[in-house]
Amino acid sequence: MTIARVRPAIFFSLLALLVAGALIVPHVANRGVVFLSGVVAINVVFGIAFNLAFAKAGILSFGNAMFFAVGAYCAGYLITQQNHLPFVVILLAAAGCGGLLALVTGLLALRRASGVYFAVITLAVGALVHVLIMKLNFLGRNDGLVGVNRPIIDLGLVELDLARGDAYYYFIIASCALLVTLMWVLWSNRFGRSLQGVKSDPMRASFLGIDIDRKRLIALVLSGSITALAGAIYAPWAQIVTPELAHWSFSTMPLLFTLLGGSAFFLGPAVGAILFGLLDYATRSLIGISDLLVGGLLLAVVLSVPGGVLGLLGSLLARVRAPSSPRREGRA
């Protein structure tokens, strides 16, 4: 499979399918399901943003909870305290805060530590951010921020009141589709290919003239700011922001989506997030054992299909195709 020829038609058909599915939900399901569906869309962005750094640049970060939380708190604070600011400005501020935090973390640790060591450092910085959030009065300490209202977007001629009906849900779907497309461009273009080189063989990449430290840093900052955006979009959806978002255990979610769907595929984390949402919904009445069931199922999938669901599908497809179309004889 070449990475130099990209086929947008395939990506956009799949994206259209996902968006269409999401747009049907409010017409056929109750409010609880619509809420869950919005969360799944945000999780799709959360997961892919993690995997952009993980699968493409080889950065294992457990800082994604803090990026998400920083974005959510930034939006929560500005919406509750600085209500006059346009929502777009609030979103940009959240992305900026997430990117800045990623930049600081990356400058501190990325050059010095790699792999698991870097992951541990992000865990430590994440714990610091978690403690900080719980100590700061203006962020509501243990209680977090409540009354994070859905905003009105002023487009000059028309005003979009996102508080009405399912408006905010549609806003989530549109903005998530946009972010997914942006990440797909970064994954597929020259930048994505050079990231893959940095991950595949850093020494070779270096001696192609690639500044590998800078590339890794950029990947982390992109991942951090897009994750913060996901958090900022989430805040008015939940209408409450709590310190649990910054807890390290929340960082395992995007990793889970990624492993479940398949890290080698751009849409792997999307598939993972959707499957996780379905699983969560299917076991919602089994209070107490629901977590156990979900955890066990996920463990089973991750252990039995190392390439994720998409990896499994891919190899099944290859097996079905193999007898009918004999492959060209390659060089030994």
Partner: peptide
């Protein structure tokens, strides 16, 4: 780059050279 095809390996090298000369050109190209 072991997981890439031979052609992709060279393409990544050519693109690395181009990116050094013009860092911001052609990033919207897929």
């Amino acid at each position: 780059f072991l997981e890439m095809t031979a052609l992709d390996n060279i393409i990544v090298a050519v693109e690395a050279r181009e990116a050094t000369r013009r860092p911001w050109a052609g990033l919207l190209r897929l």
